[in-house]
Structure formats: C-alpha cells, structure tokens
C-alpha cells in the first residue's frame, strides 16, 4: 500500500491545481476579486493576472500529474500557494490553502515516485549507461 502513497498525493494535488487553473482561464471575473491591488495597474489588469495565473497552474499541474520535472513543479506550486494563503489571510480559505501548500511541499520533498515520467527517463538513462 505504501508504494501508492506518493503517487496518490502527487496526482491529487495536481488535480486541485488543474481544476483551479481551468476555472481561472474560463471565468477570470470570478477570481479577479482575490488579486491584491498592488499587483494591478492600468496595463496589467486583475483579469489578465488571473488568466496568467491559471495558465501557470495548468502547465505545472500537468507537469505534476505526468511526473515531469516533479520537484521543480511541486516547489513552485507550493510557494505559490503559500503566497496566496498569506494574501488571503487568517480565514477559512486562507487556512485551507495553507494546508494544501504544505501537501504540495510534501510532493516536493518526496521527489519523483516510480510512476512518474522523471523516473521513467531516469531508468532509461541508467540502462543506456
């Protein structure tokens, strides 16, 4: 059972980011209210930032679910979610995101499990050597 723990956590966290990433690119208006004011300007609107954030979360979420650059993707997403949780503050949403960011950090600490593309490429490389 233990061998399924790492991939389960990795895939579960990836699905979370894929869901929210897709929501942000399909309905940026619903998320614009969460963008801190200091990040916006007349050129970079809150909507644009939400769409950009959604693109990043989708890309890194796909990396995570496939197990491609697993450590890098999970670290970036964990730090990103830390930032969001601090921005939201000590509210139910903020606490939830704080917990999720630690879960993503665990994926980083675990590294690529045996079911990732990273592991597959590593096995291929070691066979060649």
């Amino acid at each position: 059972m233990e061998k399924y723990a790492k991939p389960t956590l990795r895939i579960a966290m990836a699905l979370v980011f894929l869901y929210f990433g897709f929501q942000q690119i399909s309905s940026p208006d619903n998320w614009a209210g969460f963008v801190p004011e200091f990040l916006t300007s007349s050129i970079i609107t809150a909507n644009n930032l939400v769409i950009l954030n959604g693109i990043v979360e989708l890309i890194l979420g796909l990396f995570l679910i496939l197990g491609l650059y697993t450590r890098a993707a999970s670290l970036i997403l964990a730090l990103h979610l830390f930032g969001i949780s601090f921005s939201i503050g000590f509210t139910p949403l903020g606490v939830r995101d704080f917990g999720l960011s630690f879960a993503t950090l665990v994926v980083f600490l675990n590294g690529p499990d045996q079911y990732t593309l990273d592991a597959k490429f590593a096995r291929k490389k070691s066979k060649k050597d």
């Binding site: 690119i25 769409i51 693109i55 989708l58 796909l62 496939l66 650059y69 593309l117 490429f121």
Partner: peptide, 26 residues
Amino acid sequence: MKTKIVLAVLIALFVLGLTFFIRTNQ
C-alpha cells in the same frame, strides 16, 4: 533530457492553445 524538454514545451503550448481557444469563444 531533450525528450523531457520537448514534452514540457508541448504541454506549455497545449495549455496556451487551450487558453486562447476558451478566451476567444467566451
């Protein structure tokens, strides 16, 4: 290594294309 990079770029392009498609339709 090369394969990984190509795969990563393809995924990024796919997401950008999906975003463009969704935003255009909307």
